[in-house]
Nucleic acid binder design. Structure first.
Lengths: 141, 141
DNA sequence: CTTTGATTATTATAGTACGAACAATTGAAT
DNA sequence: ATTCAATTGTTCGTACTATAATAATCAAAG
């Protein structure tokens, strides 16, 4: 055997497969979403709804977004009229983020859509595989 | 029950979990990689190595990258000295991409590293879970 | 041989993502 | 009260991702 460690099957590497799975989900999301909301924006919106008024950095941490990333996301949510930004009276460093009434409505409408998106993404899998995937992904996240 | 479909557990949605898993993999990749090669660049490099000389669009398709994406990736691989670009003599639309000698060396060195990255990413999982994850991801990709 | 339709590559625009650097502010320890 | 370390938010640079529009080329059908 002259070529001992020659093969490297890209199509079986987690990293590559995760990228493909993400692509699939993103395109399904885009198909169902409302008002052009992206997966990231939706995640942030849900977090604000759950947390209530909170600082931008804290929101980013709890939505798994970088400080630089969450800034852009909040900017876009504000521009779309779903998020409201105000200075924290008790801490001049902080910016408090909250949902606008339109944001509340959007969250309510998007929760159903989100479920549809999840279902569509998982459609190729059996019920057992779906549960398994979620469980395993939670374990490595 | 006034609030029937109120709950939406973001932390159990595939989309969100896939994003987190991707983040994890990306940071592990960055930790092990050589010459600042990104997961995307590595995937493209592996494909060129497997395919041999091929057109940019074809490479993009087989590496699951958009035409606009593959262009940028190839540009950066060329700038790093790993890829070589030449016009196709038989088809003036096409640009042929191939590996430079340095690219060949890099692929050889990175195959081992790639395996380490995969192992590190899957480390929190049992062997059975690892096989399962790969199998399920392939099914929805 | 010319029209038509497809393919290829490029560009622009927009969003996600992260590291690094920065200034302002805060809280705590001296 | 002042110094010091940590936190917060911003900005910059780089990279990945996709859509849409464009121009050049090709192949095939008439």
């Amino acid at each position: 055997m002259t070529e001992s460690i020659e093969s490297y099957a890209l199509d079986e590497q987690v990293g590559y497969l995760l990228r493909l799975a993400n692509q699939r989900h993103a395109s399904i999301f885009q198909l169902h979403t409302l008002d052009g909301l992206t997966p990231t924006q939706f995640a942030a919106l849900i977090r604000i709804a759950d947390l209530g008024k909170c600082s931008q950095n804290r929101l980013g941490r709890l939505a798994a977004m970088d400080v630089a990333t969450i800034k852009g996301v909040v900017d876009r949510l504000r521009k779309k009229g779903f998020a409201v930004v105000e200075p924290d009276p008790g801490d001049k460093r902080r910016t408090l983020i909250s949902l606008s009434p339109e944001g509340e409505t959007m969250v309510a409408r998007m929760k159903d859509v989100g479920q549809q998106i999840t279902n569509a993404t998982l459609k190729p899998l059996t019920a057992a595989e779906q549960r398994n995937l979620i469980r395993i992904l939670r374990k490595i996240s």
